[in-house]
Structures are given as structure tokens and as C-alpha cells.
Design a protein around this nucleic acid. Structure first.
Ligand SMILES: [Zn+2]
Ligand SMILES: [Zn+2]
Ligand SMILES: [Zn+2]
Ligand SMILES: [Zn+2]
Lengths: 161, 161
DNA sequence: AGGTATAATGTGATGTTATAACATATACAA
DNA sequence: TTGTATATGTTATAACATCACATTATACCT
């Protein structure tokens, strides 16, 4: 069941990741009666080109590769939509965005492992960590609204190399 | 000993916080043979004007209040120095900076509680949380270099009000 | 179908945060 | 004192993000 998610491997079949993600996104939006419009889908697809967080202006460049004329605002609006619907996360320490690995699974925590060698970023999603955090915070009389956990280091694959 | 740090109270004697911070900073720099130059000290003092994280350009404005002509670069360089020496932290989710509450005490974690009502931001510094984090991360074969934990919510004082 | 409200997108300007590149000045040790 | 590393000055620009307002598309009611 609650298996520890493996860190994305260098040579994995990423086309499947992307396809899965887009399919799930369609389902989530259908369920929520949110409209996954063309630009939103394009942005999501761009974000899913890899497991490396991508900047808003990189997304923009990608969209405009073939002579498009999309403006930054459109990208940010699409990203806002995708974040509101739990399809994309923002990595604050990088000012960049990454596809959510747990669409629709209502995961509360946004915890990330960021390899500063290959850039690959994965969701940690540790329940014990979440508990420790909740405990520590409530001990201090603080009420949580949102949290950011971003851990930078070296991923297993880069470490092996 | 390892007492739970109280969240800064609204009416506390903050002049003492500032004075303590500057004194400790002098000591830390002396010990490390780092030079706390005028601009670095000015930036540190500005950062310590409150327990609310302050943006680089706000610091800049403050420095230039009386006709100064400091450039952004100077502020960022001072902030880099202060961060390298553990005197200031960056709050990634706010693009802002705050004085370190544990100067010289070699605390490894940078964990913050951010009240989005009053802006007051305090270091959490929870050992159990740090352990849970280390555990969860190493289970996944990841090697930590640095971490960011930023929790937004309502502080005890704002909650009471 | 037509009308109307809401949602989404287009567009241009601007705001905010951060760094590059190179010149000059200062500290400090040999 | 003189060389070298460190710190600062200066100008420009990169990178990230939002405002404000116009236009278009879609939903949904009559
Ligand atoms: Zn993949
Ligand atoms: Zn890696
Ligand atoms: Zn204080
Ligand atoms: Zn508060």
C-alpha cells in the first residue's frame, strides 16, 4: 500500500510518466469540474517533460518555440490553475514548478527532495515527518495553514555515480 | 536547558533583541575572523528592526533613507556574508531575510514558523522534527546538504486576538 | 436560439528580486 | 612598503512576477 516512492531513475520510461500524469489530470479536472483548457494542458505537459523543476519563463519559451506569442501572464495563470487543482507544485527555493506525483490522492504535505547534481526533484511524502512537524508546531501554539519542506542534496543515482 | 523557544510577543522589549543580536554578531565574527564591516552591520541592524522578514530592497530603502546611494548589489553582498556566517536566514517563501535567533549556537536546521497575520517569523528548531526528516530522507538513499522548512499559519498571539 | 453572467485569455506596461561584469578602494600580512 | 586578498562602487541587465484593462469564449438560464 503506502510504499516508499522510489527516486526517479535516470533511464526510466518517462513517456509513461507524462502520459499517466496527463490522464490523471484529465480525471481530476473532470471530477472537480475544472476546465483543463489547451494552454493549461500545454503548460502541464511542459512541466512534465522531466522530473526537474522548470521555471515559468522556460515554460514560456517552450510554448513559443514554434513562433507562438504567449505572454508571461498566461503561463502564470495556467500555473495558478494547476496549483489550485493540485496538479503542479511550486518549488520556492528554485522559483520553479514541478508536476505533482500524487494527483487526486489528496496528499496534504508538500515535501520535496531536490538533487542539486541532476536537478531531479521528487516528493518525499513522509507521514512520520508530517506528524513530527505537526507535533512540534502545535507545541508552540501555532496553527498551520501551509508548509514548505524542501531538502537539497544528492540523489541515490548521482551518489552512485 | 533545551527550552522551547517562545514565539516573540507583540509588546516585548525589542531593543534588547537587537542589542543582543549585534553583540553576538560581533562575537561570532571575531571568533571566525570575519569582518563585520559598516555596511554589513547596517544591514544586520536593519534586518533586526523587527521579527518580520524584510526584503532586500526594503533594506536598501532603509539604508538610503537619508540620501544614501547604496546599490542593490551591496545589500545582496552583505546578506550573502551574513548568511555565510550564520547571522541571517533567507525565507524562501517570502524572498525575504530575518536575523538568526541562534547565532553561534551551531544549529543545523533552518525551520521557521511564519505568521501570515502579523508577519512575525520565528525559528522552530525542533530536534524531533530534524530527526524525522533525517530518517525519512536517508530511507530514500538521499544525502542532505541543506533544507528548508517554512510553516505558514497563525501565531499564538494573533490566534488569541 | 438568444441573452446574460462568468470564466478564460489577450495585451502592454510595470513591479520586484537578483546577478553579471568590471572598476576602485581598503585591509593586512610579509 | 608593497603585494595580495578582500571589500566596495557602479552600471547594466537578467530573472521572476503582477497589474489593469480589453476581448473572447463558455456556461447556463429563459
Ligand atoms: Zn518520469
Ligand atoms: Zn541526482
Ligand atoms: Zn524582539
Ligand atoms: Zn501573528
Amino acid at each position: 500500500m503506502s510504499q516508499v516512492h522510489a527516486f526517479p531513475k535516470p533511464g526510466h520510461n518517462h513517456a509513461r510518466c507524462t502520459a499517466d500524469a496527463l490522464r490523471k489530470a484529465e480525471a481530476v479536472c473532470a471530477a472537480r469540474k475544472s476546465r483543463l483548457t489547451e494552454i493549461r494542458r500545454d503548460v502541464l505537459e511542459t512541466v512534465w517533460q522531466s522530473h526537474v523543476p522548470v521555471g515559468a519563463y522556460d515554460i514560456l519559451s517552450h510554448l513559443n518555440e514554434n513562433g507562438g506569442k504567449t505572454a508571461p501572464m498566461a503561463v502564470y495563470r495556467a500555473l495558478d490553475f494547476l496549483m489550485e487543482n493540485g496538479l503542479v507544485h511550486r518549488i520556492a527555493s528554485l522559483n520553479a514548478f514541478i508536476g505533482c506525483a500524487h494527483m487526486g490522492e489528496e496528499h496534504h504535505a508538500a515535501q520535496f527532495l531536490i538533487c542539486h547534481s541532476c536537478g531531479t526533484t521528487a516528493e518525499l511524502e513522509s507521514a512520520p515527518l508530517k506528524r513530527a512537524l505537526t507535533q512540534a508546531v502545535s507545541e508552540r501554539g501555532f496553527t498551520i495553514d501551509s508548509q514548505i519542506v524542501e531538502i537539497s542534496g544528492t540523489c541515490p543515482h548521482c551518489r552512485a555515480a
